[in-house]
Design a protein around this nucleic acid. Structure first.
Length: 656
DNA sequence: AGCACGCCGACT
DNA sequence: GTCGGCGTGCTC
């Protein structure tokens, strides 16, 4: 008797057993089958073929077999199993998450082939000694599992290292999988790969239709494409002949999925490399502390590129002490003067501010009223362009009131700085030059970003104001001045990773200054000019700064020296959430190797009308931590929690 | 998660 | 009388 064990995409931990459709249909793990599930019909995944079942009296036959060959090969099934147990997420939902949307449905596979335009092939650049060493080391690890941390300062030619490694991978008849952060998957990135390997690469960018995605999925599975470039979810692309996985800007936060299956594509890449027995390259100018620690422990081979190509000089850092200074809408006189000088020299200036809109708070000068979103209980951001108040957490929007809703007097004032306000201020100062704002609002429409980039590339003097969007990937030859308007949140945030991120941002942003022949200048406005970590970063560079942070993490029992997981819960009734988590904490606090902290409010204590709280689990023993999480997962799935929704976040990024 | 069942209050 | 609210239980 054959019993088919099926992973069904429902939020339940277990598999479900079915009878085969008939004797003819061959069933192999990884194939999709249509099954009757309760009163519904669902697309499930064959997991195993067994000879008996505990549910022998309840078994239904499979309704139909969708595939002739598995959509998930053995290695991907192994990866799914790992994902399910590591991230404590139901196996059937993991299988569905890993596939393109169109394959989650009951559609049989039909393949087309993808038309590729042939381009002129560019040739390899000459490597310096460090690059050559890196290429040789990585090449020597082909066909075996080894993780490399490729740490290269900006303009050190990391990309050329990937390209030459990929050249060798292709020569060995294997495929390369390249992951890049969300905002850097631009036409320029893709172009560089496409021009070196014409007709051999495909990019999974956001502009594709589901149909196009599926075509690329097939092409890589059938070994018709040698190089696949994509963001986070591309880590699940099937590969006929896997050769190497490369993660560009491995420190980037967009590699962590923030809902559903909360995986880190970087960590999944390392695990996949292990299962496929191939090398994995994690590359960054500013590696995460996790990866640096792994390099230190010799789990990763540390490769360093310290030379900047073409004799590009490192930019000069200048700290502007904001204490006791008059500020014109958040800008110091000194910064404005510097902008003027650079513009007069026919150069461009780039200002960073991590806050879109006009001002993060709108306040009544008469009575102190503050505009807050009723659903999230956080201040509205004032957008002058639309004359709106917008909650950046739930998108709730309202018209800006003309008089104070509380005291009915006129006196509503914007407080704090956003990109719109810096734009307005600088337009007043420099009416004769282009002042261009680059944030999510100004680039919402298709091609808007490209139009801005084209304008910048004309090279005429101008001022750019942007959020993080501008920190990566783009090359602005005429920018010689970079100003960081307000990095001070990094010093006081309750999030222990804020300082790491600030260091990464300053270093990455500095890399935008003077990439051409001109020496660049980076100006940082701060109320904390003497902060030891800021001084270390600016005087001794990111590596020394990161070492100092790692020491701090070790002393304070923080990751990567301990492992974290969060259990979040939300409901419309705040007391219910708290009681639920408190009871859970009391029940599971007995394991001595795992610390439980909380319940405390989640990063957004109230979102879209729901109250959110969390318990933090921390442990030096990963195994013990995961055993406890499994126990809790079992306990919770066994009982009915009508109004409370909970989720587990392993290795969380946004904690507080 | 869905989806059904079942038990209560309030409507044409 | 029946429509619909949501609390509870089940899915091989």
């Amino acid at each position: 008797m054959r019993i088919i064990q099926v992973a069904v995409p429902v939020p339940l931990k277990q598999f479900f057993d079915y009878l085969p459709l008939d004797e003819e249909h061959e069933l192999v793990p990884g194939m999709r089958v249509l099954v009757s599930f309760g009163r519904r019909k669902l697309v499930g995944f064959v997991w195993d073929i067994k000879s008996q079942s505990k549910f022998h009296d309840k078994l239904k036959p499979i309704l139909s077999v969708i595939d002739n060959e598995p959509v998930l090969d053995k290695k991907l099934l192994q990866l799914c199993e790992w994902l399910s147990s590591y991230y404590h997420y139901p196996i059937g939902e993991v299988c569905a998450t890993v596939l393109p949307n169109l394959l989650r449905q009951d559609k049989s596979l039909k393949k087309k082939l993808i038309v590729e335009d042939k381009k002129n092939q560019t040739t390899s650049l000459k490597l310096n000694a460090e690059q050559t060493f890196a290429v040789e080391k990585i090449t020597a690890a082909f066909n075996q599992f080894q993780t490399f941390l490729l740490e290269g300062v900006t303009a050190s030619g990391k990309t050329e290292v990937y390209l030459q490694v990929i050249e060798k991978i292709i020569a060995a008849n294997q495929q390369a999988l390249v992951l890049v952060p969300e905002i850097s998957l631009t036409p320029q990135t893709v172009k560089r790969f496409a021009e070196r390997f014409p007709g051999r690469c495909a990019a999974l960018h956001s502009g594709l239709t589901e149909r196009e995605r599926l075509q690329i999925w097939f092409a890589t599975k059938n070994n018709e494409i040698d190089i696949i470039i994509g963001t986070r979810s591309a880590i699940f692309t099937p590969l006929a002949k896997p050769g190497i996985i490369i993660i560009d800007e491995e420190h980037d936060l967009s590699f962590k999925q923030q809902d559903g299956l909360r995986y880190s594509a970087r960590d999944v890449a390392v695990r996949r490399g292990q299962f496929e027995n191939i090398p994995v390259v994690l590359a960054s100018a500013t590696p995460s502390l996790e990866s640096l620690n792994n390099a230190e422990n010799k789990r990763y081979v540390h490769l360093q590129l310290t030379q900047r190509a073409n004799q590009v000089a490192l930019p000069h850092f200048k700290v502007i002490d904001l204490r006791h200074q008059y500020l014109e809408h958040g800008l110091s006189n000194e910064l404005i003067k510097k902008i003027k000088t650079h513009l007069e020299n026919n150069q461009q200036a780039l200002l960073f501010l991590n806050r879109r809109g006009y001002a993060p708070v709108l306040m009544c000068h008469q009575c102190g009223w503050i505009g807050k979103c009723t659903r999230c209980e956080l201040p509205f951001t004032y957008h002058q362009e639309k004359n709106n108040l917008i909650c950046h957490h739930c998108e709730k929007t309202m018209k800006k009131p003309s008089v104070c809703p509380a005291c009915k007097q006129a006196g509503i004032t914007p407080v704090g700085m956003g990109t719109e306000r810096v734009e307005e201020t600088l337009k007043n100062y420099f009416p004769e030059v282009d002042v261009v704002r680059v944030d999510r609002d100004s680039t919402r429409k298709k091609n808007q970003l490209q139009e801005i980039l084209d304008l910048v590339n004309t090279g005429k003097p101008m001022i750019l104001i942007g959020t993080q969007m501008l920190a990566k990937g783009h090359h602005f030859p005429k920018v010689t001045l970079v100003g960081i308007v307000n990095p001070d949140q990094g010093f006081f945030s309750s999030d222990f990773r804020a300082m790491e991120r600030m260091g990464q941002l300053i270093t990455q942003v500095a890399g935008r200054a003077g990439r051409d022949k001109q020496k660049g200048e980076v100006v940082i406005q701060t109320h904390q000019p003497e902060h030891p970590l800021l001084v270390t970063l600016l005087k001794q560079g990111y590596s020394v700064f990161a070492q100092a942070l790692l020491k701090e993490r070790q002393l304070c029992y923080l990751p990567p020296f301990v492992f974290f997981a969060l259990l979040r819960a939300e409901a419309y009734d705040q007391q219910q959430v708290e009681n639920f988590l408190q009871a859970l904490k009391e029940k599971f606090s007995r394991v001595s190797e795992v610390n439980l902290l909380g319940p405390v409010n989640a990063p957004m204590a109230k979102k879209a009308g729901k109250y959110r709280m969390q318990i933090l689990f921390s442990s030096r023993a990963r195994k013990t931590l995961h055993e406890l999480l499994s126990e809790i997962e079992n306990y919770l799935s066994e009982r009915k929690l009508s109004k409370i929704r909970w989720s587990i976040d392993v290795d969380p990024q946004d904690m507080f």
